[in-house]
Design a protein around this nucleic acid. Structure first.
Lengths: 244, 244
DNA sequence: ATAAGCTATCACGTAACGTGAGAGTCAATA
DNA sequence: TATTGACTCTCACGTTACGTGATAGCTTAT
């Protein structure tokens, strides 16, 4: 039961922003006084928190509105998703720290740096690739099953696997049983299960295949040298931990 | 020697954005062809990288322009500063992961959460406090000495110490000799040295005073319980490592 | 020389607010 | 009870950092 300024002080966002969110129907306070003062309930605050989470992830307000007002919006799933994205972001930050470190060395003349290296780790929301990845996440939060893979064409599938592989390629110097690697491998597992049915054992076997069959290896290692081997390990670990 | 699209592909930012940066004089390519095609040199790219760093930190383009075109802009100092901010940001991200974790627990009904806790870790650029902190950083990158403390009124000083103390309060569960803590303590040391002259030994003694003299302790612990004790340790460590 | 793919410059559109202006509300105080 | 100060409301226009065509010129490969 808080008035605008109290909410503003509590959360750090401006009064005007709260007005604006009300105006566009993103967050309408559940109660208003006779003098049309906005009164925010605890539920409203939780909603706001949720909104800020999505904003932090780079969603547009329009998209946020769609997602959180969707009837089958699973708050907990969304939060867990969000957690993963945060960890990804942290990884990117670490990458940036590295980039900056390299840049400092470079600026001091201690190192040379390729142009490509100079821009590693930035988060370019306008990058259509990342854009799409995010949209997928958004839909995922609404309904996992809506992403019916049967309706995807082969290019669509290839695209999606590409996204996961690229992510894995970035992590392949971590331990295969690290949290992040396991998390992404989990995505891979779930993705595969929307195509066919894979038991953990089958999933483990598939990983083995990635290194045994050269065609697989070559295909996968395009995304990063040694990725296939890394995936085999990670998939085995994942399967063992999640075996039925 | 790259044309717009090549730069765009390399960096992930749009052609239009490069046009815009040229338009507002933020990044004018050092060369143009007869047909007024923009040609970006390696130096331009480094400039761009620098711009993106500042953007990531939440600076407005106007401010970035001021800072990087300033004659006494120290690129390396700025980079090192940037590194620190990145680490700070990563800490905040960790905090957010915690917040999300707590929220998940809460949503599952396993925990209760205060409203304040729900919003910990967010980065609100519109927050005037953080705003000002960032501006200070910007100026620092340009010229440390411009921040002439002699010209500050007492409230200004209090405000500035408040900023540092708040930062320290957030770090006080880390080890006093951790990188981040030492970095912030270093700020404190430099700040004090713009008021009077403190040898490392004097600095260490001051830290001791913070726990010995209750008036100091009370004052400091307002920013967070146990902060004074933490600062004493951190200041001692800092002094020992930097002794003349 | 012609098409495909860049590039340029207007110029208008958009998202997410900021920033007053003018007026009504509310609680504490004189 | 009147007033003051802090807060609130609703317009409504301003701003930042680009997006999105439209139209036209440039460059290179066939």
């Amino acid at each position: 039961m808080l008035k605008v300024k109290e909410v503003a002080d509590l959360t750090g966002i401006s009064v005007r922003t709260l007005h604006y969110y009300d105006e566009i129907g993103l967050l309408c306070p559940s109660e208003t006084t006779d003098a049309s003062y906005r009164i925010y309930s605890n539920t409203d605050l939780e909603m706001l928190q949720q909104i800020l989470f999505f904003k932090e992830m780079g969603f547009s307000l329009k998209k946020i509105k769609k997602v959180i007002h969707s009837s089958d919006f699973d708050r907990i799933a969304a939060l867990e998703l969000h957690r993963n994205l945060l960890i990804e972001k942290r990884n990117r930050l670490n990458q940036m720290v590295e980039t900056v470190d390299k840049t400092i060395q470079h600026a001091k003349g201690e190192m040379t740096m390729t142009n490509k290296e100079k821009f590693e780790g930035f988060d370019f929301s306008q990058n259509p690739y990342e854009q799409e990845a995010r949209e997928k996440y958004g839909e995922k939060a609404v309904d996992e099953s809506k992403q019916n893979i049967a309706k995807m064409g082969p290019e669509k599938i290839k695209e999606e696997t590409g996204i996961i592989f690229t992510k894995l390629a970035k992590l392949r110097y971590d331990a295969p049983d690290s949290d992040e690697a396991q998390c992404t491998i989990g995505e891979w597992y779930q993705f595969l299960n929307r195509i066919g049915e894979y038991s953990p054992e089958a999933f483990k076997g598939l990983g083995q295949l990635y290194v045994d069959d050269e065609r697989f290896t070559q295909n996968i290692d395009q995304y990063g040298e040694g990725l296939a081997a890394f995936m085999k390990e990670a998939m085995a670990f994942y399967a063992d931990r999640n075996k039925s």
